[in-house]
């Protein structure tokens, strides 16, 4: 564990707490893509089921339980409790365009051709693109509530911090994980446009609005 990874994980944790806070206080999931949230459930379940056969640390297990539990809870809030505030007509990204390529990639690129490792690779690839329905929705509506942008920023910062973590681990531990690094760089890259607007507008007190 190093500082980059710890801060990254805390940022990930914070993003979910911000999202829950937004839904609970506004009693609405407006502006949140159900598809992205459903993809995160798939990501966490596919990757963190190793809870049952691989013990790393209490920290690691607790985080895994939290991520699976909170993502399922968010789906429940969107699907049932605040269902009327969820507008599927603007959440139109076709997720099969993500699921199928990720499934194929995970069959080609994995560290061992066995179900658990293929699932792990699949979750890494899927996580890297799971935000696309959300970003697509943002693009369509052209604006977002400040709190939604804080959620996205925390999520993007989590991924960005994993990059110095890998560089640090390469030099201190001599380990490199090409699958995670490649997917992680792609994932961080997807946030660049968003970060630009977030840091130049939202953090300056302006509304998150995309140029027409």
């Amino acid at each position: 564990m190093n500082l980059f990874r710890l801060l990254g994980d805390l940022s990930h944790l914070a993003s979910i707490l911000v999202l829950l806070h937004k839904i609970q206080t506004s009693r609405s999931c407006r502006g949140i893509s159900f598809k992205t949230q459903a993809l995160y459930v798939a990501v966490f379940v596919a990757r963190y089921l190793d809870l049952f056969w691989r013990y790393i640390s209490l920290y690691n297990s607790a985080m895994k339980v939290f991520f699976i539990g909170s993502s399922c809870y968010i789906l429940y809030l969107m699907k049932y409790r605040y269902r009327p505030t969820n507008d599927p007509s603007i959440d139109t990204f076709r997720i099969e365009y993500l699921l199928v390529p990720c499934a194929i990639l995970s069959l080609i690129f994995n560290y061992n051709f066995m179900p658990t490792e293929i699932l792990w690779s699949f979750s890494i690839f899927l996580e890297s693109v799971a935000i696309l329905p959300q970003l697509f929705m943002l693009q369509r509506t052209g604006e977002a509530e400040a709190i939604t942008t804080h959620y996205l920023a925390a999520l993007g910062i989590y991924r960005a911090l994993y990059i110095p973590n890998w560089i640090y681990r390469y030099f201190t531990e001599g380990v490199i994980d090409p699958i995670a690094v490649t997917a992680g760089i792609v994932q961080t890259g997807l946030y660049l446009d968003f970060f630009y607007v977030y840091f130049t507008k939202v953090l300056q007190g302006q509304k998150f609005e995309l140029p027409a």
């Binding site: 990874r5 994980d9 990930h12 190793d50 691989r54 790393i56 690691n60 985080m63 895994k64 991520f67 560290y111 490792e117 792990w120 994993y162 973590n165 681990r169 390469y170 001599g174 380990v175 490199i176 994980d177 090409p178 699958i179 995670a180």
Partner: peptide, 10 residues
């Protein structure tokens, strides 16, 4: 270093 999976990461 040889490629290895960082299954210790979240």
């Amino acid at each position: 270093p040889p490629p290895s999976s960082s299954h210790d990461e979240l």
